[in-house]
Design a protein around this nucleic acid. Sequence first.
DNA 1: ACCTGAACACCGTTCAAGT
DNA 2: ACCTGAACACCGTTCAAGT
Lengths: 229, 229
Amino acid sequence: MTEQLQRKRAPRNTLNPELIVRTALELMDAEGVDSFGMRGLAKRLGVGPMALYTYFRGRDELLDAVRDHAMALNPIQLGGDTWQERVRLTCRGIRGMMLAHPCLVQLFTARPLAGHEVPHAVEALLSMLRAAGFDRDAAARAYLTLFNHVLGVAAWEVQLSRQLADREGRRQLRETMDSLSRARYPTLVDLVPELNRSNGDAQYEFGLDLLITGLERVLAQREAGPGAP
Amino acid sequence: MTEQLQRKRAPRNTLNPELIVRTALELMDAEGVDSFGMRGLAKRLGVGPMALYTYFRGRDELLDAVRDHAMALNPIQLGGDTWQERVRLTCRGIRGMMLAHPCLVQLFTARPLAGHEVPHAVEALLSMLRAAGFDRDAAARAYLTLFNHVLGVAAWEVQLSRQLADREGRRQLRETMDSLSRARYPTLVDLVPELNRSNGDAQYEFGLDLLITGLERVLAQREAGPGAP
DNA sequence: ACCTGAACACCGTTCAAGT
DNA sequence: ACCTGAACACCGTTCAAGT
């Protein structure tokens, strides 16, 4: 046995950036970004808290590294014949990325576009919108709207599933629903089943359909614009 | 002078729930929810940290109270002739509420619909969608999509303005923009001005127009649906 | 009831030190 | 270079106590 070498303290070269990032990603996906801490990560890795600071300047830098790593794991694939299909496929890729690693939605909302992996998806969306005929402003705004929808639906899903994960969360949710006054909020109380049942995929597709329909109209008006009154 | 009474310690009945909530709201709007702490609030109020626990069970309960209070300050007004106008006006009301108190967007994303003020806006949107002719599922999904858009655009705005507030944030943002490779991301680099200039109101209106256009089509298809192939 | 003070169990991070 | 240990300046919250 090599017990003597691994025993007790001073475990040599057990750490490296990738191992740290991978373990941090696991912890964040499991417990959420808020619950993630340097000390907890260090304990999980079997080292002292300060060992991590050899590889990362601090918590924020580690968060960025985790986000880039998670995004690189699920590269979005491009394709599609029409611009509608291309937009759908890219958005679906971004959505898949976020669902594969739920902590991504929190990391996105916490910090704006930093890091090196975000621009890839952005470039893809912007270029296909421009190629479809949207002008500079419309392309920028369309991209922001689309990304916002993907992020928002994923955030809702992740948060809901996290809340439903433990007893206390379920109790709290049920209490909120039960406390709604049917006299004051008849429509809301009536639609509680639909609001809860509204699972991620259906909700995502519904909103994306609305946006693409709207974008088609923007494009049609722009093409007919200069010629018509 | 009444110096003797107010001096040093034991300041009698200086605290009450409303004062606490109002002060907490100010702090959150100014510094952000993450930076807000019970100890800082207590110091601001000139009391010990534990004085707050006489009125609120803990930090989370106080956050909920602050959200309810902020929402009650800007009640959304209803009106409009067509369902499109009604939806626009209600969404604009929700947006105004969030812009008046930026911490609201963080409080919304942190916890789902708890509290007593959220349901009012939800009921308003759901009932006008139902009255417009949307079925139960479509009304629920349309509401979620609309609310998500309003929340997302506001969150983007708030976060950006907070980042632009201090020197370090501006430097970091500029660094991110400058580090983008024009060779890899030509469209993105080209549209950086449009993406940054894309201010809140224009971005908000753009996305809302897309959604309403999409909803009009859903409604048209539903009305023509049972009769047409 | 209303507020205080000390204390507990946490944080992220700095500093000096070990190998 | 790579990791440790003690320590600092923070948290939210519990507990016992004061008035």
